[in-house]
Design a protein around this nucleic acid. Structure first.
Lengths: 229, 229
DNA sequence: ACCGGTCTGTCGGCTAGGCGACAGTTGCTC
DNA sequence: GAGCAACTGTCGCCTAGCCGACAGACCGGT
C-alpha cells in the first residue's frame, strides 16, 4: 500500500521557515468533539495540527458520515478548499483535545509565494492525500467488505502504526462505526469482519486500539483477487 | 455539486510564465489508446494536456478499471505522483489523439520555486481533484446506483458540458462500461439506469455523447435522500 | 452504587445489484 | 459490403451485505 505514509509538514520545514510559519498563525485549542470547521462555512483559513487528532469527513444522510481520513500532529488540513475558494465541502472535528495553528488565506498565500519550500511541501501534502483517496476509491469499487477492511487497517497502520515488539499498534482509537464509515460498509458488517479477523489471530483490540498480530496474514486477505468467488 | 468545475491551468497562467513553462517541456503526441504512463512506472514527469482527452484510472482486477477522472485540454496530470516520488499508482491513457507537454521533475520543481503563480495554480489543481474525489467517495459510500449515476452525470456536465440551446451536451463520448467504472457499479446496472433516465425524458444519447434534457429532474434524483427506501 | 449513554455482538429477513448468458446493434476495417 | 469487434439491451439466478431489533458490556459522571 504505497503512497499512504504519514506526512509531517512541520518536521520537514527548515527552522527559519517554520518560525515564519508559526509567527503568521494563531494558536487555538479545541476540546474533544468540537468542530474546527463545518460543511458550508467559508474557507478562510488553513490549519496546521500541532497536537491531537482531527477527523475529516463528509456528512451524507443525517447521522451518516463518510470519513476521509484522520489528521496527525504535524499535518496541514483545510488546505484544499482554501486554495480553491468556495465553501467547505467537509467537516473537521477534534477527536480529542487538539492544538491547532490557523493561518489566514492571505497569509498562507504570501507564505507560499515567498517560501518555495512551503509551496512544495503543501503540494506534497495534497498529492499524498490524493493518492490515498484514489486508492480508497479503487478499493471501494472493486473489493468486498473483508478485503476493504483489511486494506483499510493496513493503510491506517502505515500512517498511525507504532511498532511494539513484534506487533504494530494503531495509536488511534476507533469504534466499529468509524471503521465502517471509512470502509464504506455498515456497522454490523464491520463488527463481523473484525471478529472474524480476531478469531483467525490476525489482530486484537486493546481498548479501541487495533493491534496487528499477523501482518502477512492481513496482506493475504487484502491482496487475494476478487476472482476467489 | 460545487468544487467540480473544470480547471484550465494553461489559461490561468500569465503569458510570460506560460512561455517559460512551454520552453521547459517537450511536446509529445499520443494516438488513441496509447498510454502516457502506466501503474508502476517511475514518476519522472508531470504532463500538461494540450489537446485531446486523457483517462486517469487504476486497474483493480485484470480487465476491471476504476476511472478517477478524465483530463481536458489545459489540465495538468501526473503531478501528484511526481511531487511525492515513488512509482505511479495510476494509469493515464489517451482516449483520442492527444498533444501533451511533458516536463521533467527537476524542471518542474525549478519552475515552482521561481514562479509562485505556477505553484499556486498547481496547488489549486490538486485541491480541486481532491475535492472532486472526496465527493465521489461520499457518493459511493452513501448512495444507491441510480443516485450515483445521476450525480456522476451532473458532475461530468459541470466540467465537460457545453450548452446547446436549452440542453447540455457532454463533449466526452462514454460507454456504459466507463460510466459503470466511474460510478462503481456493473455494466448491466449502468445500462439499466441510463435507459430508465432516458425513458423518463431526463436525458438522451447522441452517439455515445450524453445530452441532458432535464437537469432539474436529474438533480431531484441526485438529491433525494436515501431514506426514500 | 446507580444510571444513562455509547459501544459491541448476533440473528434473521429482505433486496439491491453483481454476474453469466446471449441476442441484437452499431460502426470500423479491409 | 463482408466481417469482425465493440457496444447495448435484457433475463434470471443468487449472494453479499444492509437494516431493524435487541441483549449484553463497558464507561464516565454524580
Amino acid at each position: 500500500m504505497p503512497g499512504a505514509s504519514a506526512f509531517d509538514f512541520l518536521a520537514q520545514l527548515p527552522g527559519a521557515d517554520r518560525a515564519e510559519f508559526e509567527s503568521r498563525g494563531r494558536r487555538e485549542r479545541y476540546a474533544r468533539g468540537e468542530f474546527v470547521f463545518r460543511t458550508g462555512e467559508p474557507s478562510e483559513c488553513a490549519y496546521l495540527l500541532l497536537d491531537g487528532r482531527i477527523k475529516i469527513f463528509q456528512m451524507t444522510a443525517p447521522g451518516r458520515e463518510a470519513i476521509l481520513w484522520f489528521c496527525l500532529p504535524g499535518e496541514l488540513f483545510g488546505l484544499a478548499e482554501m486554495v480553491g475558494g468556495g465553501g467547505r465541502p467537509i467537516n473537521a472535528q477534534a477527536c480529542e483535545a487538539c492544538d491547532v495553528l490557523s493561518v489566514r488565506r492571505q497569509e498562507f498565500q504570501a507564505l507560499v509565494e515567498t517560501h518555495p519550500r512551503i509551496a512544495l511541501l503543501s503540494m506534497q501534502m495534497l498529492a499524498s492525500r490524493l493518492r490515498a483517496l484514489g486508492e480508497t476509491f479503487a478499493n471501494l469499487v472493486a473489493d468486498d467488505a473483508d478485503t476493504r477492511i483489511a486494506k483499510l487497517i493496513l493503510r491506517l497502520a502505515a500512517v498511525h502504526g507504532e511498532r511494539h515488539g513484534r506487533d504494530v499498534r494503531l495509536g488511534l482509537p476507533l469504534t466499529h462505526q468509524e471503521i465502517a464509515n471509512m470502509a464504506g460498509t455498515s456497522r454490523q458488517t464491520a463488527t463481523q469482519v473484525m471478529n472474524d479477523l480476531k478469531r483467525r489471530g490476525l489482530l486484537g483490540i486493546d481498548g479501541h486500539r487495533i493491534r496487528i498480530d499477523d501482518a502477512d496474514g492481513l496482506w493475504k486477505i487484502a491482496l487475494r483477487a476478487r476472482t476467489a468467488s
